[in-house]
């Protein structure tokens, strides 16, 4: 799973802490999410997309390993 959360967050002028508060998670979760080391739940992906004013598909994309 790859994402462009960091680029979209910076474009909206949000800090990691602010995004964490808006999505209801800890800042560490946002850090690992941006690094691609954590695959969010559908709920968190939806909240993130809503805060960043984009669709889930615009932010998250799945790389097929096969």
């Amino acid at each position: 799973m790859i994402n462009n959360v960091k680029e979209r967050r910076l474009a909206k002028g949000l800090t990691q802490e602010e995004l964490a508060q808006l999505t209801g998670v800890r800042r560490e979760t946002i850090i690992f999410l941006e690094k691609g080391k954590y695959n969010p739940s559908l709920r968190l992906a939806y909240k993130t997309a809503k805060v960043l004013e984009a669709s889930i598909e615009d932010i998250f994309s799945f790389e097929d390993e096969t």
Binding site: G24, V25, R26, E28, T29, Y38, P40, R43, L44
Partner: peptide, 13 residues
């Protein structure tokens, strides 16, 4: 924290 009344952690934690 206490086990019974602790605040709910986020999904990753």
């Amino acid at each position: 924290r206490l086990p019974l009344n602790r605040e709910k952690p986020d999904e990753r934690t």
